[in-house]
Structure formats: C-alpha cells, structure tokens
C-alpha cells in the first residue's frame, strides 16, 4: 500500500513528520530515501517532535548515528559518508533494531540489505518549481509500507494527515 502526498512547505514536511512520530510504536523503522536537500532531516525533526524529543535534532552525517530521548528513544542514522554498507556494522548499526525505540535511517537505499523487512519507506523528492527558497519548495512524498506493523502506521498516518 502506498500513500502519495505533496508537501508544499517546510511546515508541511514537519507536520507529516510529527504525525509519524506521534503514531510510531516501539520497533518502528522509517527508511528515508531522497537526494541532498530533499527534506530528510526536516522530516526527521518532525518525527522527533512527534516523539516528544526536546533535544535539537541536527544532521547526523558527521557522527553517523545520533540518539535522542523521547516518549520512545529515537535513533537517527545517516550512512551518507560511508562507502560500503557493511561499514555500518562496525559500530553496531544492526543492534539498533533490537533495542527499544524508533529507528530513522537516512539514505536508506544505500543500506537496504541491512534493514529489517517490515519498514515504512518514505521517498522525498523536489517537485519542479521556479523558487530557490528551499522552505517553500514543494516536495513529492511517497510512503510505502512493507509489513503488518508499518501498514498499521501508514493507515494511522493517512487518517490523520488527510
């Protein structure tokens, strides 16, 4: 099942993220796909808000993983700097899926082999536009569920976000 939405502004991206975060449960895995500037970190900031994380969420590109405390712990991973997916294993990437909490993986297409099967994939892309003001640049967003748990999350989000 897939849900397609157009996000017309930074606020809408944040609102979708918040909806995801509010409805996420222990074990939720959200895989983000999209190029540089597509809105992955912004969406994650929304997810964190929805999870009640108060610590500011910044790009984890440099640190590879950031952990935050919220209603559930949030693990924000970013393999952008890594050349090989296996390198994620060297700092225990796979262990995050065993821990209590919600995992958000940016650049998920780079590490698809290492992700659990039941995940919610969110693909973001810049829609054609004349603006170079990134806050108001429309984004196409496709959300796809790959299992039972992610399906129920997607249904909840669909209801709340429509």
């Amino acid at each position: 099942m897939m849900l397609r939405v157009i996000l017309n502004s930074r606020e809408e991206t944040l609102r979708l993220g918040m909806t995801l975060g509010e409805r996420a449960v222990d074990g939720t895995v959200i895989a983000l796909v999209g190029d540089l500037g597509a809105g992955k970190t912004t969406l994650t900031q929304g997810i964190a808000q929805g999870l009640g994380v108060t610590h500011p969420v910044t790009s984890p590109t440099f640190t590879l993983v950031q952990e935050y405390e919220g209603r559930l712990p949030l693990f924000h991973c970013d393999p952008y700097r890594l050349e090989r997916a296996e390198d994620l294993l060297s700092f225990g990437f796979d262990e995050y899926f065993e821990r209590r909490g919600v995992v958000v993986v940016e650049w998920a297409d780079k590490v698809s082999d290492m992700l659990p099967e039941d995940l919610l994939a969110v693909t973001l892309s810049l829609a054609p536009s004349e603006t170079i003001d990134s806050d108001n640049h429309p984004r196409n967003c496709e959300i796809e569920a790959y299992g039972v748990a992610s399906m129920s999350l997607l249904l909840a989000v669909k209801e709340a976000f429509a």
């Binding site: 190029d35 540089l36 500037g37 597509a38 809105g39 970190t41 912004t42 790009s59 810049l126 536009s129 004349e130 603006t131 170079i132 003001d133 990134s134 806050d135 640049h137």
Partner: peptide, 13 residues
C-alpha cells in the same frame, strides 16, 4: 540545509 537545497535546485534548472 536551505542553501544546500537552493544550490541543487539552481543546478537542475
């Protein structure tokens, strides 16, 4: 992150 998106949008156009 905004300026990063801007350069991308600019390059594409």
């Amino acid at each position: 992150s905004g300026v990063k998106t801007s350069i991308r949008a600019f390059l594409e156009r």
